[in-house]
């Protein structure tokens, strides 16, 4: 009984941690610009695919990972510079549609460059699973959780301790006021895209040994990440983490205890329920309209 429960929990927490990382990326850009960046899943794909192809060329894994993350960061900046920035005063909805276009474009390029096959990435450490009270834990799951935790702590520090982090927060709270105190909001926006691309690519790299990776892996994982962010309340960092973990665990429990057929249905009912009773999500900020 316990073994069974633990097994579902491990599965859920692992995949939930990935959702959380993706959700954080959504949150970051949403905070800085109120744009929901649907190209977030593509950063994930770039991270995984670039690492796989670089290691296949003989680059040592660590360097390949660094290069892949850098590539994603550059791509994040390019996305903001060449797709979002030129649309300057456009509506948020327009910007969201631009990100959808960008995601299709990136996916298309990836398909041309890397082909359509699925690729394998080696586990970071041993392939031997770890046994805990009769349940089995993939060693890569520990990497996912560990790196996820490190990233979350780093983000918290970044936003509370550094000037740039505070500038991003300030911009998210009030763009006009931020500009008045001398924050270059375009720069902040670019930074937000870069950091969120870095986050996405890290998520893509740590889960690739578990899920495999391919040019279209970003579609469904990106969508799940968005669901997680929405459950947590768009714009809330804690919400993204809690939303991601909750989504992952509910999915795994539903697959194990109810039926795998209803797994996705349960997950999506959850978002309906949450948004029905708490329209701003679990940790969503209360918005007061000032007249």
């Amino acid at each position: 009984m316990l073994a069974e429960f633990l097994q579902y929990l491990f599965t859920g927490v692992t995949i939930g941690a990935t959702y959380a990382l993706i959700a954080l990326g959504f949150t970051l850009i949403y905070n800085a610009s109120h744009v929901i960046n649907f190209a977030q899943g593509e950063f994930l794909m770039i991270g995984g695919m670039a690492t796989v192809s670089l290691t296949a060329m003989g680059v040592p894994m660590v360097i390949a990972i660094v290069l892949a993350i850098t590539l994603a960061g550059v791509l994040g900046i390019a996305l903001q510079r060449f797709a979002i920035a030129p649309a300057k005063q456009a509506d948020v909805v327009t910007l969201i549609i631009i990100t959808i276009g960008a995601s299709i474009f990136i996916r298309g390029i990836a398909q041309l460059v890397w082909g359509k096959e699925y690729h394998v990435m080696q586990n970071f450490s041993s392939d031997e699973p770890i046994r805990v009270f009769g349940a089995v834990l993939n060693s890569q799951s520990l990497w996912v959780l560990g790196i996820g935790a490190v990233v979350v702590v780093a983000l918290v520090l970044f936003f509370t301790k550094t000037l740039i982090g505070k500038a991003i927060l300030a911009t998210s709270m009030n763009k006009e006021a931020a500009r008045l105190v001398g924050i270059r909001t375009q720069m902040v926006l670019m930074l937000a895209f870069m950091v969120s691309a870095l986050l996405g690519s890290v998520a893509g790299i740590v889960v690739a040994p578990i899920t495999f990776t391919s040019y279209d892996i970003g579609i469904i994982l990106g969508l799940k990440g968005f669901v997680a962010a929405a459950i947590g309340g768009l714009g809330s960092g804690v919400g993204a983490v809690v939303g991601g973990l909750a989504l992952g665990i509910v999915e795994a429990m539903a697959a194990g205890y109810i039926s795998s057929d209803y797994k996705d249905a349960v997950a999506f009912s959850m978002i309906l329920l949450v948004l029905f009773f708490m329209p701003r999500g679990l940790f969503g900020a209360k918005v007061v309209e000032r007249v």
């Binding site: 069974e4 491990f10 089995v136 899920t211 795994a252 697959a255 795998s260």
Partner: peptide, 20 residues
């Protein structure tokens, strides 16, 4: 008799079900 959808990334839960 369990199933998984094409985009699933982890089938441990379903297999545990069979194992038990």
């Amino acid at each position: 008799d369990v199933t998984y959808s094409g985009s699933d990334t982890d089938m441990t839960a379903q297999l545990t079900n069979i194992r038990n």
